[in-house]
Design a protein around this nucleic acid. Structure first.
Length: 906
RNA sequence: GCGGGCGUGGCGGAAUUGGUAGACGCGCUGGAUUUAGGUUCCAGUGGGGUGACUCGUGGGGGUUCAAGUCCCUCCGCCCGUACCA
């Protein structure tokens, strides 16, 4: 784990390639020539490459390097292929960590953020990305969030933003709202106080208005990973089912003194249940309400045991994972409801911790025989289990969730599940106690955050006028810079003056909204802002977005597969509806990359160690560099600061160069999979960079002039090499276009090997080279042929090396550029066109065919391409190994796949 | 819990549509050059067997002339789960 510290003594190892100077040289040149500045040009086909912008935590990490290298490969490839490429970069700069830093270290969130950005920008630039830095912005720039406030108001006017009550995690000691990640085992991470659920008025975006469209349009996103589309589909969670009204056998006496509104009073006599299984109504054995259900709240007023139970349930927290993995608990209310179909039958009403208030109606009926959760619950509380679906075939233990024929179900008996569902719904409807409904799991997007470091929501609360939007000419609503972070709560709310304003409508004293936006709002439209980042008059410049959008290739982590991407899709629809953009789907192509992992190390005391703090001994043991004490080598895990299994990209770039870091990121693991960072891997990458350099850095290289052509047909050896070059072009182009970057690198390496091997078999004599056969006994070609061969080979060798430089350039832009220059070119490689293979060179006239007997490989034979089937069969059957395997028996059948395989079935 | 993904030599992985499993690299072994080597070059390298062969893509089962690839099932690990970004 000991790295060579910079400056790297490259000449010590016979290396002539100085990555430090070379990388700097090309980065400066690209910058001077503005090589990557994008301009709208309707005469050219555009290509918009976007890598998810980073949160400015202060340092870049390997995950960033991977993400941006992947995006850069695409951007550089498309650029070489003649597209007008937009490849921007910015900062997802609002959010909690800045506020935490302010609280812990007394730095202002703004200074902390912009310092981090300055530092990270420098680190990013060293990777050598083909980014148009002139378009850079941060979401915390007033110029950006001003436009976001306009969008918010436009959404509000269209009814796409609204306010309602919703629960938050409340820390009673710090008097602040906690994020889910700040709640640990039901307690506040700093105060340790038991977290309470508190209901607050909050802002929501009406994403559910587009639920159906967001679902349907997934099928048009054919360049998205199937898994992401599936995850979104499940997240939206469309389900067909029924609402059923269960009548309470005794209405609940309301505890409150004030008269309840009529609709609410109605709720106290019936329980509205959503179910996807109305067919199993005859198997119902209980009703369960969410702890957050209005009836639960009403009952808890007069029942301390129930109130305690609800408190207990709330302690689990607000996350679905916690609620659903918690042990199933129920509270028998003693109430009963009438069964809708069976006269005289009643069902007990429970409060259950696994019933979510946010989904359906917050109430379910339980049919234990045909649902796992209901079954578990019924077992625990000894409720009846009535089988209403007769299983097909071999009987399985309950619960049974498959199809079958209805039984014990009155008018549904004999029907299959699908028909029974329909019939039950019709019956419910005719009885006036239910109806068929389509339900979505998707909930509206809560965007309110009771925090300082976010985009202020631009509304004013007036006692007389209610919610009043801030007039557009008064935008932006700017964050105050003198907020106090020492107190608990929301610094905006605590600020002495900021929130006090006059109502824009009646001029009376009023208050600003002190909630800020969820940072997912900021990242939902940044892709569109990159098209015209400087426009101060409007969030979006229509002509610019019409040209550049949609994003052709979006690259980022799978962890964003649902929320960020769904929110962006919603936002684009909302911006479309409010006239800002002319499209609905922001990202035509999506690639989700895997994470960067590393071994983790612990010393004897169980303390995590950084990789550079330990050393591996030849005997396989590991020790602490300083103390010499043994170190336990742990699992390979996602790099994280807490486990200290991180490698700083800056140090790698110092020691080995950006190209080496990029190569390592691209060469071994396929980009969609997790990548394990290893020191030996980086060594291997670094060696390859030096091998590339040796291809061109040779005083005796003796290459023919640029563009010299072969006269007549190429000599045999030259043709072989040329074929390989063109096959490599085809293969690499294909690999790159389908994100098989590791395979693309492998293919270029193969060509490099071949060129190097070829070069080592050639002597240079004067200006001509002489091919030396490996086989001493072979007849040497005559002088004329040799001259032709060597001359052609020199020309092909140049073509080969130039091709290697071009093909590797999206991955390793610095060394590729340097090679190009070394080969005598005056042009910059980044301005060169991507090579195209000659079709005629891609096909071989002799193919290798596998010969199998009963599916087992017995021989391979060489045959002319498209050889006749009977001829192939005859040659295959004549093979010694085939004859042996057949052992005298007659083949029953021979299967021949032309140019691929002959399978003899014995 | 639910949803999604992944699993191939000692290691990372390749195999575009069901058609020669292990490309390319790391590591390792042997050799050459070298005062030296985390340099470079050459050769070898899935397991077993002298060999003909045989066993092999997380486990078990199935479809097929043929399965890493398709189907069923089980196991392990990872991601998301709505206030981390």
């Amino acid at each position: 784990m000991v790295f060579i510290e910079p400056p790297f003594p490259f000449e010590l190892y016979g290396m002539n390639y100085n990555h430090g100077a070379t990388e700097k040289k090309w980065q400066n040149l690209w910058n001077e020539k503005k090589s990557f500045e994008a301009k709208e040009d309707p005469s050219k086909k555009k290509y918009y490459v976007l890598s998810m912008f980073p949160y400015p935590s202060g340092r870049i990490h390997m995950g960033h390097v991977r993400n941006y290298t992947l995006g850069d490969v695409v951007a550089r490839l498309r650029r070489a292929q003649g597209f007008n490429v937009l490849h921007p970069m910015g900062w997802d700069a609002f959010g909690l960590p800045a506020e935490n830093a302010a609280r812990e270290r007394g730095i202002s969130p703004k200074d902390w953020t912009y310092d981090n950005i300055a530092n990270m920008r420098g680190e990013l630039k060293r990777i050598g990305l083909s980014i148009d830095w002139s378009r850079e912005f941060a979401t915390c720039d007033v110029t950006y969030y001003k436009q976001q406030q306009k969008l918010f108001l436009d959404f509000y006017k269209k009814g796409l933003a609204y306010r309602r009550k919703s629960f938050v995690n409340w820390d009673p000691i710090d008097e602040t709202v906690l994020a889910n990640e700040q709640v640990i085992d039901g307690r506040g991470w700093r105060s340790g106080a038991l977290v309470e659920k508190r209901e607050l008025n909050q802002w929501f975006f009406k994403i559910t208005a587009y639920a159906e469209d967001l679902l349907q349009s997934l099928s048009t996103l054919d360049r998205w990973p199937e898994k992401v589309r599936l995850m979104q589909e499940n997240w939206i969670g469309k389900s067909e089912g029924a609402k059923v009204f269960f009548k309470l056998t005794a209405p609940i006496a309301r505890a409150g003194a004030s008269p309840a509104p009529a609709a609410d009073a109605e709720r106290m006599v019936t329980i509205e249940v959503f179910t996807t299984r109305p067919d199993t109504l005859f198997g119902a054995s209980f009703i369960a309400l969410s702890p957050g259900h209005p009836i639960t709240a009403e009952l808890a007023k007069n029942n301390t045991k129930l109130a305690d139970f609800v408190t207990e349930c709330n302690r689990i927290g607000t996350t679905a994972a916690a609620i659903e993995t918690a042990e199933k608990m129920g509270f028998d209310t003693g109430l009963t409801v009438a069964h809708p179909f069976i006269a005289g039958k009643t069902l007990p009403v429970y409060i259950a911790n696994f019933v979510l208030m946010d989904y359906g109606t917050g109430a379910i009926f339980g049919c234990p025989a045909h649902d796992q959760r209901d079954f578990d619950f019924a077992t625990k509380y000894k409720l009846s289990v009535i089988e209403v679906i007769a299983q097909k075939g071999e009987k399985q233990p309950l619960p049974y969730t498959g199809d079958g024929v209805l039984q014990n179900s009155g008018f549904l008996n004999g029907l299959d599940v699908a028909t029974a569902k329909k019939t039950a719904i019709e019956k419910l409807k005719s009885m006036g106690i239910g109806e068929g409904v389509t339900q979505f799991r998707l909930r509206d997007w809560g965007v309110s955050r009771q925090r300082y470091w976010g985009c202020p929501i631009p509304v004013i609360h007036c006692k007389a006028c209610g919610v009043v939007p801030v007039p557009e000419i008064q935008l932006p609503v700017v964050l105050p810079e003198d907020a106090d972070f020492k107190k608990g709560g929301n610094p905006l709310d605590n600020h002495p003056t900021w929130k006090h304003v006059k109502c824009p409508s009646c001029k009376a004293d009023a208050q600003r909204e002190t909630d800020t936006c969820d940072t997912f709002v900021d990242s939902s439209w940044y892709y569109a802002r990159f098209c015209s980042p400087k426009n101060d008059a409007a969030p979006i410049t229509k002509s610019a977005t019409d040209y550049w959008l949609p994003v052709d290739q979006y690259v980022g982590g799978v962890e964003h597969a649902i929320l960020h991407l769904l929110y962006s899709r919603f936002f684009t629809r909302a911006m479309n509806e409010t006239g800002h953009v002319g499209l609905k789907e922001p990202f035509a192509g999506l690639f989700t990359q895997g994470m960067v992992c590393h071994e983790s190390y612990k010393d004897e005391d169980g303390k995590w160690l950084y990789p550079e703090e330990m050393e591996k001994r030849p005997d396989g043991t590991a020790v602490n560099v300083k103390t010499g004490r043994p170190v336990t080598v742990g699992r390979v895990e996602v790099m994280s600061k807490s486990k200290r299994n991180v490698v700083d990209p800056g140090r790698i770039i110092d020691a080995y160069g950006a190209d080496t870091a990029r190569l390592f990121m691209l060469s071994d693991s396929p980009p969609e999979r997790d990548l394990e960072w290893t020191e030996s891997g980086i060594d291997g990458a670094w060696r390859y960079i030096n091998r590339l350099w040796r291809l061109v850095d040779d005083e005796n290289l003796d290459l023919p002039p640029i563009n010299e052509k072969i006269e007549g047909a190429p000599a045999e050896g030259a043709l072989k090499l040329k074929k390989h070059i063109h096959k490599t072009i085809a293969r690499v182009t294909d690999c790159l276009s389908r994100f098989a970057f590791n395979a693309a690198v492998a293919s270029v390496r193969e060509l490099t090997n071949l060129l190097q091997e070829y070069e080592s078999h050639v002597y240079k004599v004067g200006t001509a080279a002489v091919l030396v056969s490996n086989n001493k006994d072979a007849a040497q070609p005559d002088a004329g042929m040799m001259l032709k061969e060597t001359k052609d080979q020199r020309i092909i060798y140049r073509e080969g090396v130039e091709t290697v430089a071009k093909l590797i350039s999206p991955m390793l832009p610095h060394i590729a550029s340097e090679m190009w220059e070394k080969l005598g070119h005056k042009t910059m490689l980044v301005d060169e066109a991507w090579p195209t293979p000659e079709a005629a060179l891609l096909v071989d006239n002799v193919v290798t065919i596998a010969v199998q007997v009963n599916g087992k490989l017995r021989a391979t034979i060489e045959l002319p391409r498209d050889c006749a089937k009977d001829k192939a069969e005859a040659i295959a059957l004549a093979q010694d190994s085939v004859v042996r395997a057949l052992n005298g028996s007659q083949p029953k059948k021979v299967i021949i796949v032309p140019n691929k395989i002959v399978n003899v079935v014995a």
